[in-house]
C-alpha cells in the first residue's frame, strides 16, 4: 500500500521545509541515499513522529537536516553514542543514524564497535565516499590503497577499512552494502534494516566528485558514477565465480567490492535484553523474602 508514486510527492512528504537547497555538490551521492531512505520509510508507513535521526559531522551527517523529523546533529564521530541514549529514553523510537566513513569508521570507530557488539536497536546508514568530503578531501580510513587525498598526496599506503566485515564479526543483526545507482535492492535493504531489532548497518558506496573523484582522475561526474558499477559485484555473483569460475574470471573480480546482505540474524537487541532484566528484578522482589522458587 504505497500512496506516493513520484519523487516530487515523496519529497513533499519527507523533506523539511525551509532547509532547501542542500549543501551538496553536483554529482554527490548523499542525496540519493536520502531518497532511498524516504522510499523505505514511505513503504514501511512508520509514524514519522517516532522516527528519530542522529548524525555526526560531515557532508553525509547533514542529511537529517533535510528530513521533516526530529534530528540530533551531534559532534564528529559520536552520533551512534548519542543515538544509544535517544533509544534508551523511549523504546517506541526508531532511531536512524546517518554517518560518513570518516565519522563512523574513523573518529567514531569505537562507538560503532560497541553499539554493534551490544546490538543496540538502531539503523546506521554509513555513506562511504572514500574521503573526508566536508573538510576538503583528507585521507579517510576507507580510502583504497594508492588513492590520492590532500593528506596522502603521494598515494595512500594504509589498508582500507571494511566496515561490513567488522560489523559481521561483532555480531550485528543486519549488515549490508550497496551502491547508489540501482534503487530496488537498497530500498528493500533499508526497510529490512529499520524493521530489524538490534543493530543494523547499511553501508553505501557513494561518489564524492569534488573531493575524491577530481583528485583520483575518475573523470567527469558520469564517469565517476560508472566507476562504481565497474568496480563492485553482487556478493552472490562473486561467491559463484570464486567457486566455479576460471582463473581468468577470478582474476577479473577479485579486486571488486562485494555488495549485498552480509548478515541477517536475530540475536536479541540490547533493549529487549534490558527489559527482561528489569522484569526479572521485579519478579524477584515481588516474591516474599525467603520464599523458594
Amino acid at each position: 500500500m504505497v500512496g506516493i508514486k513520484t519523487a516530487d510527492e515523496l519529497n513533499k512528504k519527507f523533506l523539511r521545509e525551509g532547509m532547501w537547497p542542500t549543501i551538496f555538490c553536483n554529482g554527490c551521492g548523499h542525496g540519493v541515499v536520502l531518497e532511498y531512505t524516504f522510499w523505505a520509510l514511505e513503504e514501511l508507513g512508520l509514524d514519522m513522529d517516532k522516527v528519530i535521526f542522529s548524525s555526526g559531522i560531515g557532508c553525509s551527517s547533514r542529511l537529517p537536516g533535510y528530513i521533516n523529523a526530529d534530528g540530533l546533529h551531534t559532534t564528529h564521530g559520536r552520533a551512534i553514542a548519542f543515538a544509544t541514549g535517544i533509544k534508551a529514553a523511549d523504546p517506541d523510537f526508531h532511531v536512524i543514524v546517518f554517518t560518513g566513513d570518516g565519522d563512523c569508521a574513523g573518529i567514531g570507530g569505537n562507538h560503532f564497535i560497541h553499539a554493534a557488539r551490544r546490538n543496540i536497536d538502531m539503523t546506521v546508514i554509513m555513506i562511504n565516499n572514500f574521503i573526508y568530503g566536508m573538510t576538503g578531501g583528507q585521507l579517510a580510513p576507507t580510502a583504497p590503497l594508492g588513492s590520492i587525498a590532500t593528506t596522502a598526496p603521494y598515494g595512500n599506503i594504509e589498508h582500507p577499512f571494511d566496515i561490513c566485515n567488522l560489523a559481521c564479526a561483532l555480531g550485528a543483526n543486519y549488515v549490508a552494502r550497496w551502491g547508489v545507482s540501482h534503487p530496488y535492492q537498497p530500498i528493500k535493504s533499508i526497510k529490512e534494516g529499520i524493521q530489524k531489532k538490534g543493530f543494523s548497518l547499511l553501508e553505501f558506496l557513494a561518489p564524492c566528485p569534488t573531493a575524491y573523484g577530481r583528485r583520483n582522475k575518475l573523470g567527469d561526474i558520469k564517469k565517476h558514477w560508472a566507476w562504481y558499477d565497474n568496480n563492485t559485484i553482487l556478493k552472490e555473483d562473486l561467491e559463484k565465480i570464486m567457486k566455479y569460475g576460471t582463473e581468468q574470471e577470478k582474476e577479473q573480480v577479485k579486486e571488486k567490492i562485494p555488495l549485498g546482505v552480509f548478515q541477517d540474524i536475530q540475536k536479541p537487541g540490547f533493549f529487549e535484553a534490558y527489559e527482561k532484566l528489569v522484569d526479572r528484578l521485579k519478579e524477584k522482589e515481588s516474591k516474599p523474602k525467603g520464599a523458594k522458587k
Binding site: 528519530i52 542522529s54 526530529d70 540530533l72 551531534t74 559532534t75 559520536r78 553514542a81 548519542f82 543515538a83 544509544t84 541514549g85 535517544i86 533509544k87 534508551a88 529514553a89 523511549d90 523510537f93 569505537n110 562507538h111 564497535i113 560497541h114 551490544r118 534490558y274 532484566l277 528489569v278 528484578l281 522482589e285
Partner: peptide
C-alpha cells in the same frame, strides 16, 4: 534497573556524555 530506568556502561566518557544528551532529548 530496579526503578525501571536504564543504566549503560558506555565505551568511554565521550560516549557516556553523548548518550546522556541523547537520552535528555528523548525525554
Amino acid at each position: 534497573p530496579r526503578v525501571g530506568g536504564v543504566y549503560i556502561q558506555m565505551e568511554d566518557e565521550i560516549g557516556s556524555i553523548a548518550a546522556v544528551i541523547g537520552a535528555a532529548w528523548g525525554g
